[in-house]
Simulated scan of single mutants.
Amino acid sequence: MKFVIAPDSFKGGLTAKQAAETMAAGIKRVYPDAEYALVPMADGGEGTVQSLVDATAGQLVTAQVHDPFDHLTNADYGMLGDGHTAVIEMAAASGIQFINDQTANPLVTTTYGTGELILDAIKRGAKKIIIGIGGSATVDGGAGMAQALGVKLLKADGKPIGFGGGALADLDRIDVSQVDPRVAQATIAIASDVTNPLTGDDGAAPVFGPQKGATPEMVKTLDHNLHHYAQVIARDTGRNIEQAAGAGAAGGLGAGLLAFTNAQMEHGVELVINATGLKEKAAGADFVFTGEGGIDFQTKFGKTPYGVAKACKSVAHQAPVIVLAGNIGKGVDSLYTKDAIDAIFATPAGAKPLAKALEDARQDIAQTAENVARLIKATRQ
C-alpha cells in the first residue's frame, strides 16, 4: 500500500515537513510496512522556501541585503536540490515585519533587498527563480528591486531617483544598459494569486497601500506616481504593464518583475506542485493525506490542500484524498468533488485554547492520522 503525504505547514505549530512526518508517524502505527512518499507543500506564501528546500533536498542560503528602510539585514532564500532553481520569499527582505505603526511609510520603503536576493541567486547559478511576493511593506512598483538589478531610474538631471513610492514622481527616464546579462537569461516565476492591476481603483495603492501605512492622501500620491512610472516604463522599455493582471501584487512588485525581468505570473500552489514533482510521486498512490492549519470554502481558490487533491487525483484517480486541519471553517462542503477532496478531519483533541492547540499539534495530528488509518484498515478487511 502506498501513502502520499503532502501537507502545507500548520502555521504556528509545524512546518510542512514536520506535519508530513507527523502524519506518517500516526499512519505507520497501523501500516508499518506501507510505502510512504512525503512531499512538504506550500502555496507560494509564507513557508514556501522551507517547504521546497525540504521537498527537494536543497539548502538555505543567507545573504546580507537591505531592508525596506535601506538598513542591512540577513535574509534567507532556498537553492533547490536540482542546483539551478532558487526560491525566494520577497518578505524575507522587504516584508511587513520590518515596519510598525510608527515607522510604516510606503512613500519611502523599498524593495531593493528583494532585488539583491534575486541577484545573489543568479550569481550562484540560478537559471530559474520562483518568487513568492506576499507580505510586502512597500508600494514602490518594484522600483527598488529593479535598482538592485542594475536598472538606472534617473531624474531629469541624470541622477538616480531615491527609494520608495514617493520618489517615483522624480522619474524622467530609464536606462537598462548596465543590467547584468544573466538577469535576462534567468526565468522568474511569480507565485501570486493576486490579479490586481498596478493602478486605478483596484490597483496597488488603493487596495494594498493602507495595509502598509498609507494614509488616504498617500494613496492618491502613490497611485499617481505608479501611473507615471508605468508610462515611463512603456516608453523606455516597450513593456505595457500598468493593467497587467497581478501587476499590483506586493505593492506593485509584480509590475517591476514583469517590466525588468523575464518573468510571468503563475499560481503559487501549481509552481510548488511542479517544483516538488508531486504528480510523479503520487503515481500509484492508494491514499493521499494533505492538510494545513485551517480549511474553509476559500481553500479551493489556490490553497494547498485543494491543489494537492486535484494534482494527485489527476494521476491516481481512485486514491481518496484526506485532509487534516487544525480548524474547519465555513463552506467546506464545496470542497467535496470527485476529482478533489474526499474527507476532512479536524485534528485538535477536544476544545482547547489556541496556545494549547499549538502545543499539542504534533500529538493531535499523529493521533488523527492514526485514527483515519484504523478506519481505512477496518473497511478493507
Rank of each mutant, 00 (worst) to 15 (best):
N100G: 01
D67T: 10
A55E: 01
V61T: 05
T110I: 04
H84Y: 14
D67V: 06
N74R: 15
T111W: 00
Q97R: 14
T111V: 02
M79D: 14
T73L: 05
I88G: 13
I96T: 11
I96Y: 05
G113Q: 10
L72Y: 13
I99R: 00
V108P: 04
Y77K: 05
L72I: 09
M79T: 11
N100A: 00
N100R: 06
E89A: 06
G78T: 03
A57N: 08
A86M: 11
L60C: 01
Q64I: 12
A75D: 01
V108W: 07
A63I: 04
S94K: 00
G58Y: 00
Y77P: 09
A75W: 14
A55H: 04
L60V: 01
D82M: 09
A57M: 06
G81E: 05
H71Y: 01
A93E: 10
I99L: 00
M90K: 09
T62R: 12
G95R: 13
A86R: 04
H84T: 03
T85K: 01
A86I: 11
G83M: 12
M90L: 12
Q97P: 12
E89S: 06
T109W: 06
I99G: 00
Q64K: 13
A104I: 15
T56G: 14
G81Y: 03
F69K: 12
Q59F: 12
D101P: 12
T56I: 04
D101W: 09
T85Y: 13
H66D: 13
A93Q: 08
Y112L: 02
L72M: 12
G78R: 01
D70R: 01
G81V: 04
E89W: 11
S94P: 05
A91E: 03
M90R: 08
T109G: 03
V65G: 00
A92M: 09
